[in-house]
Structures are given as C-alpha cells and as structure tokens.
Amino acid sequence: MNPLRLLYLRWSVVLVAVMGLAALTAQHYRDHLAGFVPQEVTREAPAGDIRVAGMVQRGTVTGNARAGHAAFQLMGREASLPVVYEGPPQDNLRAFKTLVVIGAWDASAGVFRAREIGIVPNYGFVAGAYLVGLLPLALLVFAMSRRVNLLYEDMKTSALYQED
C-alpha cells in the first residue's frame, strides 16, 4: 500500500477514536451540568433529584458544615433559595462561594434538602487546556510524518537518488 495512504488511514483511526472520546466526555458533562438556578426552583418546583447552582448569601449560614449539617440561603440572580444540608462533612460552605447543591425540593417545608455540595465545575478551562495541549502536538506530528513520507517517496522516484 502507498505509505502516504497508510499514514492517512492511521490518522483517521486516531481521529475517530479521539472524536468518540470527545463525544463521550461532552455527554458525560452535559448530564452533570443540567441544573437549575434558585428562582426556577421556587417557581417551577421540579420533582426528584436536581442540581442547583448559586452563591452562598452572607450571614445566612447556620449549623456546622464541617460536621455535616447546615442551613443557608443560596442566592440566584432574582431570588434566593433556603437550603438545608445534611450530608458528608463539607469544607466549601463559605459566604460568597459559588456552589452546586444536589438534592430535592421539599415543597411542603419550602426548603431545598441538599445531600451533596460541590463547587461549580469549570469545564471551559479544562476543555481549553486539553485543546491547547493536544491540538498543536497533533498537527505538528501529522505535518512532520507527512513530510517525511513525501521525502521518502521523492527519494524513490527522483533521479537524484540513484545509487552512488
């Protein structure tokens, strides 16, 4: 087989694998990103487990998150949401900290019962770093391999490279 065509074939395999991985990753994080802002929770009262992102309002934190139970107000842009947290010990609960709380809306008590608190994922930076890190390398390797293959082809065909 023509070595140059073989090169393109190999790279297509790698490309397909990488695209598959990228699709999987995007899917994975989309599932994690689907969430609400506080005003939507109070207005729409969705059922089941949901994720809500917001900022901890200053002076509203009561209880001890380090011991695993606390209550606070999660600020959205328009409204704030009372949250009661019961779960594993948690360090990240501080005023003005942007958080994601995971749990269910308790419509009867009018509070959000959270069992998990996480920091807001910043996928943009992650994606940026991976693109910046891998894309130039891939382009460079591809360009170099191609040029080497072309040079070998040249050697075989051109009159310059007859045996001495």
């Binding site: 990488v18 991985l21 999987l24 990753t25 994975h28 360090d91 996480g118 920091i119 807001v120 994922p121 910043n122 996928y123 930076f125 992650v126 770093a129 991976y130 890190g133 891998l134």
Partner: peptide, 25 residues
C-alpha cells in the same frame, strides 16, 4: 489516559473539575 483523566477519575476535593488540567499539564 484521556479516557481515565476526563471520565474515569474523580474530581478533586478542593479544585473540582479543574484538576483534570493536571493530567495534561
């Protein structure tokens, strides 16, 4: 490595998802 780094590993306790940059940096 990419699969494990992006999907298979847990987010960091302090840095969250951003820690995944470590696997490339």
């Amino acid at each position: 490595g990419l699969y494990l780094g992006l999907l298979g590993s847990p987010p960091d306790y302090v840095q969250g998802e951003v820690v995944r940059i470590m696997y490339i940096h």
